[in-house]
């Protein structure tokens, strides 16, 4: 079973999201980036499958800038191979363009199972698992957990899909298959920076020349802005003691003290 895990980085939401001068995009060069948290879940689930059933795991990323460390981290965690798709790319590329380049690469790369995060905080124009499934004409599912290989002798892949209210369903699918992973069976493993540095000195990233961005079905963003507070909270200023006092007063006023 050959698994590709697609990874990308996204702006770190802990920091202020600066907008560019046009008011239609982020000031991408001024932001700090972190791996998309759901891609981390997908990678963890793939590595657990490798450990349980001997799958071969490749981490694949588009070279939109500064992504080498993310790929070295995947290798340090236990991925067998790291693939960097290189071309004229940058961080402003919409998800749809990224999906097309990835789909063109994946179509002929011989993977059985494509795993990716269920969504990313920036995928305004569609989540990657569905976009790839549609472009490649492969079966796909989102909001997936509990992936199992060798669910039967045919080589089908088992997985569980989550719905609202905690309902779920278990499926079995032929490959090639694309899964948008919501959560791994265990929290993503941690590797110390020193270990990632060590891997970056000994391992190599496989570079693949990939296609040029196309402009198919692109969206026009007219404005990007911070939510205009409609009903912003009444803020209680002060330290924890003052906030506790305000809360006590609210509980009394609302007769909510047991």
């Amino acid at each position: 079973m050959r698994i590709a895990v697609l990874v990308k980085d996204v702006p770190d939401l802990v920091e202020e999201l600066e907008l560019d001068e046009s008011g239609r995009g982020l000031a991408v060069d001024d932001l700090s980036y972190v791996p998309s948290e759901w891609d981390d879940q997908a990678l963890e689930e793939a590595l657990l499958l490798k450990e349980a059933s001997g799958a071969h795991v490749s981490a694949v990323a588009l070279d939109t800038g500064d992504i080498d460390n993310m790929l070295y981290a995947a290798l340090a965690k236990g991925a067998d191979r790291a693939v960097k798709l290189v071309g004229d790319y940058d961080r402003t590329m919409p998800g749809r363009q990224r999906a097309r380049i990835l789909a063109d690469y994946l179509a002929g790369a011989g993977y059985d199972l494509i795993m990716t995060g269920v969504q990313a905080v920036d995928d305004l124009d569609g989540q990657i698992a569905g976009l790839l499934g549609g472009m490649l004409g492969w079966p796909h599912a989102s909001v997936v957990r509990d992936v199992a290989l060798g669910a039967d002798a045919s080589g089908a892949v088992g997985f569980v899909q989550e719905y609202a209210g905690g309902r779920m369903a278990e499926f079995r699918s032929a490959t090639p298959l694309v899964l948008g992973v919501q959560a791994a069976k265990k929290p993503p493993r941690y590797v110390p920076i020193a270990r990632i540095r060590q891997v970056s000195r000994s391992a190599t990233l496989e570079e693949v020349e990939a296609g040029a961005p196309t402009s198919e079905s692109l969206l026009a963003i007219e404005r990007l802005y911070r939510p205009e507070a409609q009903g912003h909270a009444t803020m209680w200023e002060g330290d924890a003691a003052e906030v506790a006092a305000a809360l006590m007063a609210l509980l009394d006023e609302q007769h909510l003290r047991s």
Binding site: I128, L131, G133, G134, M135, S142
Partner: peptide, 23 residues
Amino acid sequence: NTTMGMDLGAASAAAEGRPMVAY
């Protein structure tokens, strides 16, 4: 934008060559 919407939205847009807006 439920599980069903995430499955069907992006995929049908991509397969039919149509724009997609999420969230």
